[in-house]
Design a protein around this nucleic acid. Structure first.
Length: 155
DNA sequence: GCCAACGTTGGC
DNA sequence: GCCAACGTTGGC
């Protein structure tokens, strides 16, 4: 079992949108490192922190789970899509995604400012200088500590 | 809106 | 393979 953090801009797709849809293909990722995590490493049942970025108060908003493992991102084939990539095609897809399933919206949102203050979270990739990855692995201890801050318990 | 930091592109 | 130019991310 692995643990992940996935960023999303809530103006585009928020934890509330995921809650309403229940499941969603995580399309539109156009960064190779993030793609590789989805294509190679994210397994069904892995748990995911959903992070709101580029918004008034950035931070961790909720929890999701990998529902379907890697498959080609169809938005890359759609010339009408913002995520269209003419270099990707059905025979040789360049971009992959996983499908995620809603688990919870945290009652206690965990803001980035709080994460930065937590001694136990200082090694998180999220707060390393210059890191812009939209999908990143978490240590189990980091994952659990954030659940604690969110006042959320698994089971 | 600013801007630091990073990733990608493409000429050479 | 180098690297300048450009585009994007994302916090502030």
């Amino acid at each position: 079992m692995n643990y992940w953090l996935m960023k999303t801009e809530p103006d585009t797709f928020s934890i509330d949108d995921l809650k309403a849809q229940k499941t969603s293909g995580w399309d539109g990722v156009r960064n190779y490192q993030a793609r590789n995590f989805m294509r190679d490493d994210m397994k069904k049942g892995d748990l995911i922190l959903i992070y709101h970025s580029s918004c008034e108060v950035p931070g961790v908003a909720g929890l999701a789970i990998v529902n379907k493992e890697s498959h080609p991102d169809p938005s890359a084939f759609d010339s009408q899509s913002n995520y269209f990539d003419p270099k990707s095609n059905q025979d040789n897809p360049r971009w992959f995604m996983v499908q995620v399933k809603y688990k919870a919206k945290f009652k206690a949102f965990v803001p980035l400012s709080q994460i930065k203050k937590e001694k136990k979270l200082q090694d998180m990739k999220l707060i390393q200088k210059g890191n812009r990855l939209s999908i990143m692995p978490l240590e189990k201890s980091e994952f659990l500590h954030i659940l604690k801050l969110a006042n959320y318990s698994l089971t």
